Amino acid sequence: MAHQQQISLPAKLINGGIAGIVGVTCVFPIDLVKTRLQNQRQGHQIYKNMLDCLVKTVRSEGYFGMYRGAAVNLTLVTPEKAIKLAANDFFRQHLSKNGKGLTVFKEMLAGCGAGICQVVITTPMEMLKIQLQDAGRLAAQQRMAVSATQIARDLLHTQGIQGLYKGLGATLMRDVPFSMVYFPLFAHLNRLGQPSRDESAPFYWAFLSGCLAGSTAAVAVNPCDVVKTRLQSLSKGANEESYNGVVDCVSKIMRKEGPFAFLKGAGCRALVIAPLFGIAQVMYFIGIGEFILDQENKKNIL
């Protein structure tokens, strides 16, 4: 991320927050489809594929049914992006104290640190979002009317704060490798489009690099995302088993559904992550964060 390293951290956080909000709004319906497809079991399939799921969701729940759980994401996506970007910057700076460029190994270490830090926000955000996204799939088997506030209150009352962190291990298994793949891959892809070492890559190149790196990392860690989704789904449909941790979940999925079950929703996840990170690069290229801070500084001077 050669051209981004010169951006101040406050500007980067603003860019990341705006990118997250815009991205979530654009791709949330596909993310909802991903969750529902991943939660389907063999013999109890309501949806054939991504398009079938979208059509059935709109028919049964209306257009806004595709945005079940979006409020949770929109509320927490800014602090999540802030932690992820700040942590990645922090680790990159400390790993390059000698002033030299980072090796791929050190870039992966920085991404690893960022992934570990972000789960503080990611785990409860995903926990609440998944309950709301999957409610429509379960509606055919049981009547459900839930809200994020209700779910959070019930979890805190019955299980304490750890209730919101159910699936923490699986979230770490997904987000740490994702960041280890995404950050170095984007940096190297983006570097290929730089006219010279001191110039930024063109807008379209940064956008495509973000999309390609994001989708590649998303597909690579999809098996972990399937496990995380299953563990964090509190409500079960008829004949749907429960899991006692990551190992038990992996074992039961492999035994009852086969290895290809770990690829459920991979296409949807790639379609979600690619534009999210492509949009993030657009925000950095346009420099919205810098513009906002510059206007604020001018007001303070006046």
Rank of each mutant, 00 (worst) to 15 (best):
G136Q: 12
C112Q: 09
L85A: 01
A148E: 08
C112V: 04
M125R: 07
T103I: 09
G69E: 01
C117H: 05
K106C: 00
A170H: 06
A148P: 05
I116Y: 03
N88C: 15
K81V: 02
G136W: 01
L192M: 14
V104L: 15
R143A: 14
T122K: 06
G163W: 04
S179P: 03
G160L: 08
T103H: 10
V119M: 07
T103S: 15
L85M: 05
A145K: 15
L185K: 02
Q150S: 14
K106T: 00
H188C: 10
A86C: 12
G160N: 02
I161E: 10
L74I: 08
R92M: 13
A145W: 04
S147K: 06
L185M: 15
R68P: 04
G163Y: 04
N98I: 02
I151V: 15
G115D: 07
V119P: 07
H94I: 07
M173Y: 07
R174W: 11
M125N: 06
M180C: 13
G113P: 06
A187K: 11
N88G: 11
V120H: 04
G163E: 01
D134I: 00
M180T: 08
T78L: 13
Q93I: 09
R191Y: 10
S147M: 10
K100V: 03
K129M: 13
V181P: 00
D134V: 04
L109D: 04
M180P: 05
L185T: 11
D175S: 12
D89Q: 14
E80F: 13
L172F: 12
